[in-house]
């Protein structure tokens, strides 16, 4: 297990995006970065994932074991990462095949069963619903044994009920990994996070969360209250930003 810490100012080219970041993400926990559109959430996802772009961190991004981040992060994005020409097994094993390793088909089949896609292994992504597509993406993250997983708005294109089901599934299957969840959905943040921050240009503010275990039941009063509080804070942010 690997803890992650990120401090400093985030820049896009010559423009400051977020100042005074100080994020401590404990090992094996879910940390959530919440914010309105355009605040720089996905930029942080790309930064942690080590993907190229105009972003630059004037500060430090480090792990507690002192080893480099590269090669230890898996990313699941909103969509578009499935190969339309490949069936589900081939999609799940694409990492191994891209690296020139022997694909572990048996494990891919087992994972597809775990995410609830048994019997669909030889379908193409075009035959799947949006939720099923994200289940495949989740299986692909799981087959990569990366200790750190970045989820960049993975469920935002799904309808509410599918989203709730996917949140439960992801919480169950990603247990034990250090997860960075990027979202703009207050309920998602409240349900899944062990720690959560609200991002704004002046930095990240801590979000108070219910003292229960994740995934939290969306029907309990404390979850609903936390969601409402968060929503009104986001609403204020939006109003300030114009």
């Amino acid at each position: 297990m690997t803890a992650l810490s990120m401090t400093g100012d985030l820049w896009i080219g010559d423009t400051p995006l977020i100042r005074n970041l100080a994020l401590d993400m404990p090992a094996g926990r879910w940390c959530c970065l919440l914010g309105v559109s355009g605040v720089g959430k996905s930029t942080i996802a790309r930064l942690i994932a080590g993907l190229p772009g105009p972003q630059r961190l004037d500060g430090a991004l480090s792990t507690d074991d002192g080893q480099p981040l590269a090669q230890r992060v898996a990313l699941m994005a909103q969509g578009g990462q499935l190969l339309p020409w490949a069936n589900l097994v081939q999609n799940v094993t694409i990492g191994a095949r891209l690296r020139g390793e022997k694909p572990d088909t048996a494990r891919a089949l087992a994972l597809l069963e775990q995410v609830g896609l048994a019997g669909l292994e030889h379908r193409l992504p075009a035959d799947l619903s949006g939720g099923q597509g994200q289940r495949v993406a989740l299986a692909r993250v799981l087959i990569e044994k990366a200790p750190i997983v970045v989820l960049d708005e993975p469920f935002s294109a799904l309808d509410t009920l599918t989203r709730l089901a996917m949140q439960d599934l992801a919480a169950r299957l990603l247990k034990g990994r250090t997860v960075v969840l990027i979202t703009h959905d207050p309920l998602e943040a409240v349900r899944l996070s062990d720690r959560a921050w609200l991002l704004g240009p002046q930095g990240a503010q801590d979000i108070a969360l219910p003292q229960t275990t994740t995934p939290r039941d969306f029907r309990t009063p404390e979850v609903l209250a936390a969601q409402a509080a968060l929503l009104s804070r986001l609403h204020q942010d939006m109003a300030c930003a114009g």
Partner: peptide, 9 residues
């Protein structure tokens, strides 16, 4: 991005 994340040759 996928190719980069998966360290594709």
């Amino acid at each position: 991005d996928l190719a980069l994340m998966m360290r594709a040759t």
